[in-house]
Design a protein around this nucleic acid. Structure first.
Lengths: 336, 336
DNA sequence: TTGAAAGCGCTACCAC
DNA sequence: GTGGTAGCGCTTTCAA
């Protein structure tokens, strides 16, 4: 049995396909009577319009493509959630693409999404090369980055002010009496989540007249648990007198917690700790992490809105900065 | 500037569109010379085929739809990762749909995906009603459930044998000398992740001649941190002599850990704990959780393969059971 | 208020 | 080997 098409519906209802089409698209130009008749026929035949055929004519797919490394990360998953929500509420579907950090996976996906005629592109937590942005330009679809880094500044970016957020985190510690503050970080060469946070850390120290010491930053290439554990353990060995550590991700912080348990340090009694991201992990550790929360779901939503709405407001031409927020929990102690 | 179409490429290269099409689709019926010429023209014009037009003819979208509640959950995210990986390697794109547990969100998405002519449907962690499965049948696309529950047994299911897995977890505790074992669980009315695990718990006790006591199961509707914390605290109050608890999810277990800290209990010294799921959370808690690992990424991959491959092997007609595995970490102590 | 028909970009059939 | 063309299911003029 063939699936019914508009043609078939028209025949059954004894009207033209044009009329059916009009009714389907809420246009005008038909009597209530025919409308009722057609709608009934559709119902009865179980007709479902073919979005592909529609797309061919309308030149739009009502689909946006999302490119992200590691879908299953706490951060990515939250962003994706926000994206899907906002997209769906605006009649768009979301195609997810899991890009590998190496190779030209991203280019391959870009080509694929171009063929699929996506109406927009979202890049999450990714470094956008010039090759990428050049290709996007040629694709002629709107694109927005989320927590990503691009050389091409004409692509709007939705992000948190990482430097300021890190600054706030460190200042938070300073205000609670800490002066021996270490940092666990991603790579200083990472322009995305590495250097900005390191800079914020440095700046906060500087502004509060605390001497900066290179060796008080322990960095790894990743932002994961194991990275945090190793980095923290290294840091503690080098600087046993640290009273606080700022970790550039909640996962790093959770690793730091593990390292502290291993070396018999109690948090926050012996060492205070501030995380970063505000993922659900941060409330599940023990002690619960005081952390800098990024509103990932909101970031995803904002990005979609910026992508889909014709950019009338020049204010958002270059994207949006989402406010971060320090969530106080139990991992920081105040020194008198 | 219009985007170049196949027609335009044909004109530029002085061949027919039929020839271009053949070359594009790796068919036969053209000389090496024309192939080279056409490919060069394509390259030079920056032509990209239109998958929508293709789809209209081929009656396929090379897209599969994934429906899941809560994209951002640890479990869902892992499954999605596996799905995307396997789908992409088979030339399929993935549309994610975040279904709310209430309302008829799922039906709406189903209709949408039907219009988009998806080639397959994947249901994750969801309860499939008869209305759903009836609609799917009528859509005439293959569908598979992953860690889901459906009344319609003709829909292949990819899952872990939850009862057996829970059984193994509890038996693991029993073999380590525990006899006072409580359970923190989802709702007994939840046929998906509730009752099977509870049954496994009961059965293990029974098989090892340990009396079953209803009140040693504390359940909540959710499987989250707060649920676990509350449930554990309730349980501990009622049964202070428990030496072990089996939690029906890692998040529940992490909540249980928090509850233990609050009541001054040390894990595993005072209380042993086994989690469920094997999410990345389980290695980030302190102590690291001994847990029953479900291979979520593999489950996603398997589901896609089953969905896309014509089902030649009757063995998989009804789906696949993915092996679970107990990962031993630091949350269980052996009683002598 | 309605219908006929062109055409979106492509594939596949048939003819040469 | 190659080209002409019907037609996938739909929207949208243009006429009636």
């Amino acid at each position: 049995m063939q699936k019914p098409t508009i043609k078939y519906v028209a025949k059954e209802a004894n009207v033209s396909i044009a009329t059916v089409s009009r009714i389907l698209n809420n246009g005008v130009g038909y009597s209530e009577k025919t409308k009722k008749l057609v709608l009934e026929t559709i119902q009865q035949m179980g007709y479902s319009p073919n979005a592909i055929a529609r797309g061919l004519i309308n030149k739009q797919s009502n689909t946006i493509g999302v490119l992200m490394p590691e879908i299953s990360g706490l951060v990515s998953a939250d962003i994706l959630q926000g994206i899907e929500k906002a997209a769906h509420s605006q009649g768009q579907s979301v195609i997810v693409c899991n890009t590998a950090p190496f190779g030209n996976q991203t280019m391959d996906y870009l080509k694929l999404l171009q063929e699929k005629q996506v109406d927009g592109l979202l890049f999450t937590s990714q470094f956008l090369t010039t090759e990428h942005s050049t290709y996007i330009k040629q694709m002629d679809v709107p694109a927005i980055t989320i927590s990503a880094y691009s050389n091409d500044k004409t692509i709007p970016a939705v992000r948190v002010d990482d430097e300021q957020a890190a600054y706030d985190a460190v200042q938070y510690l300073i205000k609670r009496g800490h002066r021996h503050i270490g940092m666990i970080s991603g790579s200083p060469d990472d322009p995305l989540a590495g250097s900005p946070r390191i800079n914020g850390y440095k700046k906060a120290l500087y502004d509060h007249h605390i001497e900066y010491d290179d060796s008080k930053i322990a960095w790894r290439y990743g932002f994961y648990f194991e990275d945090g554990r190793e980095a923290c353990s290294t840091l503690l060995q080098k600087h046993p007198n640290l009273t606080a550590i700022f970790a550039a991700s909640d996962e790093l912080a959770s690793g730091a917690i593990a390292a502290c348990y291993e070396s018999g340090l109690s948090i926050p009694k012996d060492l205070s700790l501030v995380g970063y991201d505000g993922t659900k992990l941060s409330k599940m550790t023990h002690p619960a992490l005081t952390t800098v929360s990024q509103h990932f779901v909101e970031m995803g939503e904002t990005a979609v809105n910026l992508l889909l709405k014709p950019i009338q407001d020049t204010k958002y031409r270059s994207g949006a900065i989402i406010q971060h927020q320090i969530i106080e929990r139990a991992s920081v102690r105040t020194i008198n």
